[in-house]
Amino acid sequence: MSTTASTTTGTLRPPLGSPMVQITGLHKEFGSLHILKGIDLTVSTGEVCVLLGPSGSGKSTLLRCVNQLETFQAGEIRVGGERVGFAEHPLPDGRLARLTEKQIAAQRARVGMVFQRFNLFPHMTALQNVMEAPIHVGKVPTAQARARATELLERVGMADRATHYPSELSGGQQQRVAIARAMAMDPELMLFDEPTSALDPELVGEVLNVIKDLARSGMTMLVVTHELGFAREVADQVVFMADGVVVEAGAPAQVIDHPSSPRLADFLNSVL
C-alpha cells in the first residue's frame, strides 16, 4: 500500500451507488458458539448504514469480520468488490487459500475503524497517533503526513490539542482523535463500533457531530450505535440484528418508526 491520502481520493473509488460492502451468507462460530447465522448485508458506496441490535447479538463480531479482526467459517465478504481474507478463486481441490498477513494488512489499510474504547496509542501525542499509519504503512513523507494530520485534527476540532497525549484528553476528545487517525489512511469505508457508548452523556454530541460531518462528506460508513436520533438523521439504511441474524432492514423512517417485528419494537422501547 503506497497509496497516499490525497492520491486515492475520488479516483479509485467505485461510483456512487455501486456496492462498497457485500456480505453474503456469513457464519461465525467461537468454538461451539454459533454467533453469526447467515448474515446478508449490502452497503452502497456513499451510504451510511446503522446497525442496531441488543447487546450480544453479534454487531461487533460482524464489524470485526469485515476488518478481519475475526475469521469466519462460511460466507463471503467483499469490500470495494474485492474478496476479504481469501483468494478470489478456489483451488482445484475446492479449498480457499487464505491471504498472507501482508495482503490482509493491505486490505485493512483501506478500511478505517473506530472502537468503543478509542484505543489511541498512549505513548504518542494526538498528532503522532494520526501520523503513525501514513508514515509507516503508507510511506508518506513525514512533512506531508504532518500537514495532512494537522488538517484532519482541524476537521475534528482537535488542532489545539495536537501535542497532547491521550491521557491528557477527555473521552470525547480521544474519540475525535481516533476518528482522525482512522481517516488518515484515506479509507474507502469507515467502521464505527459504538463510538459514543463509553462517553459521558455531555460528550456524546461532539463525537456524533464529527461522524455526521463525515457522513455528509460522502464517506461510506457502517455504524453500530444505540443513538436513534443519529440513525434517523444520517442513516440511509438501518439494519436490526438479533441473535446473529438480520431481523429487519430498510430506511430509518420505516425501521425505527414502523417496526414490523415485535423483537424490534421491544428493542426500540428499551433504547428510548
Binding site: 500500500m1 489499510a109 475503524m113 496509542f121 505513548h123 509507516h136 504503512v137 487517525r181
Partner: peptide, 25 residues
C-alpha cells in the same frame, strides 16, 4: 489488546506493530 487491534485496523503488519506499538508500551 485493543492497541494491537487498532494498529491492525490501520493496516500495520505484525512486525511493525511489535516495533512501533507493543514494545514501546
Amino acid at each position: 489488546g485493543g492497541q494491537g487491534e487498532a494498529a491492525k485496523a490501520l493496516g500495520m503488519k505484525p512486525s511493525l506493530i511489535m516495533r512501533r506499538i507493543t514494545i514501546p508500551q
